[in-house]
Simulated scan of single mutants.
Amino acid sequence: MTDQDVTVRRARAEDIPGLVASSARLFAEDGGTRDATINVHWPHEHGAASFAAALEDPERLVLVVDHQGRVVGHLTGSVTEATARRLVKSATLVSMYVRPEHRRARAGAALVTEFLDWARAQGAEEAEVTAYAANTDAIRFYERGGFAPQLVTLRQALGGDKKKGQGD
């Protein structure tokens, strides 16, 4: 693939089925393999309504990677106004996926560039993205794009399998 093989553009209503399919691939490939608490069926159950709402919301961004009229990737983002707790307007890269066969076309980098340009135009002073700690490829990708670690989320399962006294 070359850069000319794919186009990054704003999503339209007719892209929703492709967005749902792209999101389902993301859930299956990333969250579904790294987090047992993720509902991998969410994109098929709720994705169409979620994408339709996002397309209508001026504080949300929905981009697609188009290859010959077919959605082969996506990015969603949002902006949050400054608050008394967080003093700057910020942009969050919520979700991003590019089919593996299109990743060498630099579609991911083009998506992030469009997201950052949009965030600046919205008046955001910072941008953030989360990635699973085990997804070292995603972390390296975002670091190459200028993102740097700021927070670490630590999680403990509270399921009934752990016996009292274990792990003390």
Rank of each mutant, 00 (worst) to 15 (best):
H41K: 09
L154W: 10
L158P: 00
A84R: 12
A48W: 04
P100D: 05
A138F: 03
D30R: 02
R25L: 09
G123E: 06
E29D: 15
A49Q: 11
R99M: 13
A148G: 03
A21C: 00
A133D: 06
Q4E: 15
W118S: 10
Q166N: 03
L63Y: 11
P100I: 01
N135F: 02
F147K: 04
V62A: 10
L26W: 05
Q4G: 12
T83A: 07
G69Y: 10
P149E: 09
E101N: 10
E81N: 12
H44K: 11
R155A: 05
V88H: 14
R34F: 10
L61E: 08
Q122C: 12
P17L: 12
Q4I: 07
V72L: 05
G108P: 06
D57M: 04
V94M: 13
K89Y: 05
A53R: 14
V71E: 05
G165W: 02
H102I: 01
V64T: 08
F141P: 04
T136V: 11
V88F: 13
L93K: 05
G77M: 12
Q68N: 12
W42C: 00
A133S: 11
V65N: 03
T33R: 14
G165A: 04
H102W: 15
V64N: 06
T113D: 13
R12E: 15
G165Q: 06
L111D: 06
A121N: 13
W118D: 10
V152T: 13
Y97G: 04
G145W: 00
A36S: 10
E81R: 13
M1K: 12
D15A: 11
G145N: 10
M1P: 08
L19A: 09
Y97H: 14
A138E: 05
A138D: 01
I16C: 05
V112W: 02
D5S: 15
P43Y: 07
H102S: 01
T33W: 00
A127S: 15
A84S: 13
Q156N: 01
A107K: 10
V129I: 14
V98T: 11
D137R: 07
H46W: 00
F147Q: 08
V88G: 08
W42M: 06
V65Q: 04
R34P: 00
Q166A: 10
V98R: 09
T130C: 03
Y142N: 04
I38H: 01
R103P: 02
R85W: 12
V6A: 02
T130V: 07
I139L: 03
R86I: 08
M96H: 01
Q4M: 09
V20K: 09
V152S: 02
A53L: 04
K164Y: 01
P58K: 01
L87F: 11
G18Y: 04
R60C: 11
V40F: 02
K164D: 11
K162L: 12
G69K: 13
A131I: 03
S23R: 09
T33E: 13
A127C: 07
V8N: 13
R60Q: 15
Y132Q: 06
A131Y: 09
T83S: 15
E45C: 00
V6M: 12
